[in-house]
Write a protein that binds this DNA or RNA. Sequence first.
RNA 1: GCCUCAGUGGCUUAGCCUGGUAGAGCACCGCAUUGGUAAUGCGGAGGUCGGGGGUUCAAUUCCCCUCUGAGGCUCCA
Length: 577
Amino acid sequence: MKEKDKELELEKLRHTCSHVLAHAVRNLFPKVKLGMGPAIENGFYYDFDKKEGFDQEELKNIEKEMKRIIRRNLPLKKIEVSKEKAKEMLKGEKYKLELLEDLKGKITFYEQGDFKDLCKGPHLETTGDIIAFSLLKTSGAYWKGDSKNKMLQRIYGTAFFNKNEMDEYVLRMEEAERRDHRKIGKQLDWFSFHEEAPGNVFWHPKGSIIYNEVLKYWREIHEREDYQEVKTPIILNKKLWMSSGHWDNFKENMYFTKIDDTDFAVKPMNCPGGMLIYKSRLHSYREFPMRIAELGTCHRHELSGTLQGLFRVRMFTQDDAHIYCLPDQVKGEIKKIIKLVLEIYKTFGFPEGKIELSTMPKKHIGSLKVWKESEKILTEVLKEEKIDYELNPGDGAFYGPKIDFHVKDCLGRTWQCGTIQLDFSMPENFDLKYEAADGQKHRPIMLHRTVLGSIERFIGVLIENYAGKLPVWLNPTQVIVLTVTDRSKPFAKRVVGELKKNGIRVHLDDRAQSVPKKVRDSQLHKANYTLTIGDKEVETETLAIRTLDGNVKFNVKLSKFIDEILKEIKERKNYSK
RNA sequence: GCCUCAGUGGCUUAGCCUGGUAGAGCACCGCAUUGGUAAUGCGGAGGUCGGGGGUUCAAUUCCCCUCUGAGGCUCCA
């Protein structure tokens, strides 16, 4: 409860801050029109209609002006007026007037000195209660979040009740920057991006190890869950995409090519290819539920401004699966997938995920009735499984509603990874059938699902969650063996040989460098274990083992170390377990 | 795609405002050093300043275009 109170106070503070920001901008730039200015997680923003963006100099002046307003200790007064009166008060403020249109009953304003803003509140009692605030950045933002509307200039800021909390926030942001997967990927030589192929990942040898370990685990667990893996072509005839509905709903994001005078498209999704496999023979209800999985590489021409490291790329591999089932199997299958997703996330050690139910988007295929039915099924499953979820209206796939699994990156931004989608349309479009117990042909129900979402995105999140210190089973550099003197080389080589024989990824550092130097390098390479071999170790045939957190254990028998690390790898142990 | 900002050896970066063809650290190579848990010392090689155009006697530095990246917005796995 106390925590909640604090959040509420913080929201009041930040919301008041946004008013002070608007007040300051109004004072300095009288011609600028005001948009909206709410409190958000970690801060606040305000949108302004100004021709050019605010530059650093202007931002500094705005901060100064805000400080002046705070110092004047202006009380915030709530004013209630009729809609007519409000219209008069907002004369010339076209955005505010637009907001007013949607409001009913009494209209409330908040007033501080000579500045009034259309606002529900609540607010602090006076501007003087703002202790620590800072303007952070600017950006463009479409009015009312619609790209058809004009782009306004947004100023972001944050505020706290004391300076310490502000400093802590700044520190947190700096730490977040160090966790950035793009930075870590470059430092550790895991992957790179190149101008020659924007939005496409180049996996280096070490990155490929991570990638393949993820897939290895994925295949193991999917085999256990009775999935059958398939592989379908990347380039398929345009006609297929027209009948699947992708042409009408997705073509802006697709790549096309012409082969022998025929139009082809590069697949942005795997479903149509999967449909063709299904249709290649007749199916019986006895086969159901039939779980067909594909690690399918998709290409989507994402807008250039949306590309973001591994999180948002133009070529990515989905851990897709299509499940064909009978109506009375649907719920059970969805429940199974939810369990599977949660199990896999736990193995990877993801601390918090958010589950969302996304419903019918504006652009969609299929009838309203079918959509409502599908949404009802998904809602029921979530309720029956007692899963906390958020409703995300209008965010479903164009062919059906979905349950999404989101995980956080280092900056607290959430990314959709897993998804479960109910699809009544695709089976219709492709005229899928099965023979039922009654001897008649029926339409199967199809589920689309991913667990990791995109392997690329998932690894990106993984790296940030671990700040690059991957669990042993995933780490491309599991062990680094380093020598103290050349005298220890033969034994060090023997150790490396033994580890390699056991399939452990090990590197020998026998450079003529000091031990502290080599230890430092090993730590920077984020090897899980650093084995230092000196005279003592040679003599007793033991190891000195240093872990990633800097602890050192001496006198460990090689066989014991091998047993332990193999166990750790086999169990796919992560640090949160 | 839109808004703002950025782009200098493999990496991190100084210089750019006030034009006169680049300076450092790490990594790399060589030599010396054989040293116990986050950086041994010395020396060397390496960049024409994302790309194109313009202004100028002269551009990394000023202007325009373009590409790529960052943070947002819209969109999305």
